[in-house]
Every structure is written in structure tokens, then in C-alpha cells.
Computed example of a mutant assay.
Amino acid sequence: MGPRRIKLGVLADVPEGGAVGLAPSGNDDKVIALKRGDKLFLWENDCPHNHRPLELKRHHFLSPGGAHITCFAHSAHFSPETGLCFAGPCAGQSLTAVPFSVIDGEIWAEI
């Protein structure tokens, strides 16, 4: 039996060069989706520094200009493509990738 899939959202809702939160749970999203060209990246919304959500308010995950993911609690900065923290209190640690597939324009987590 293959992985179980959970629908997270629709690919069209992820803006080019932007990020959105998916899989809401209470006031926080469990997953961050980012689109860069024809590539989609999904990360757990969990800072490795202190295991809290990254955004200050919903869908605000990126630095000014959108170059990288930022944890707004302690200013950790992560590469959108690799999840690696390159500045801040968790430098050298990484966000956790979420395995996924896109089927007919829908984003499905594979767990």
C-alpha cells in the first residue's frame, strides 16, 4: 500500500514567487507552500529553533521582497528551495519538507 494522501489545497492558489499557508489548524497553518517558476516547495510551518509557527500573521512567511522564508519570532532566515536556515538562532538547521504530489491541479500531502 502506498502513502496516504491528504488534500491541502489548489496549486492555482499559490502565487508565483509567493507563499501561502495550507492545512489550517486553529489560528496556524501546518504547511507552507511556495512557488518558484515551475517548482513547488512544501515545508512544515515549524521553526527548528523553538518549534513555533513561522508567520506573524496568516500567509506572511517571506522576507520583504520575498527572497527567503523568515521566522518572525526570532528573525531566522531560510532558503525557500532547500529549507536551510542561513541566518539566525537556528543557522545550519533546516525546515522539514512535506512530501507531496500535484494531481489535476490539487496539492496532496503524502503521509
Rank of each mutant, 00 (worst) to 15 (best):
M1S: 08
P3N: 13
P3I: 08
R4H: 14
K7E: 15
K7C: 10
L8V: 05
L8A: 08
L11I: 14
L11T: 13
D13F: 05
V14Q: 12
P15Y: 01
P15K: 09
E16L: 10
E16V: 07
G17Y: 03
G18V: 04
A19P: 15
L22A: 04
A23Y: 04
G26L: 03
G26C: 05
N27D: 11
N27R: 13
D29M: 01
V31M: 03
V31C: 02
I32P: 15
L34H: 15
R36L: 10
G37C: 03
G37V: 04
K39L: 03
L40Q: 07
N45I: 12
N45W: 01
N45M: 01
N45F: 09
D46K: 14
C47L: 00
C47Q: 02
P48E: 00
P48Q: 01
H49I: 07
N50C: 09
N50F: 06
R52G: 14
R52H: 11
L54T: 14
L54D: 14
K57T: 07
K57G: 01
H59I: 04
H60Q: 10
L62G: 02
L62Y: 04
S63V: 13
G65L: 03
G66N: 11
G66V: 06
I69G: 09
C71F: 00
H74G: 10
S75A: 08
F78C: 06
F78D: 06
S79I: 03
T82D: 05
T82Q: 11
G83P: 11
C85I: 12
F86Y: 11
A87V: 06
A87Q: 13
G88L: 02
G88D: 03
C90E: 10
C90W: 01
A91W: 03
A91L: 13
A91H: 10
G92M: 04
G92R: 01
S94E: 04
L95T: 15
P99Y: 03
P99D: 08
F100S: 11
F100G: 11
S101E: 15
V102T: 03
V102M: 13
I103M: 11
E106Y: 01
I107F: 00
I107W: 01
A109N: 08
E110K: 10
E110Y: 12
E110D: 12
I111C: 03
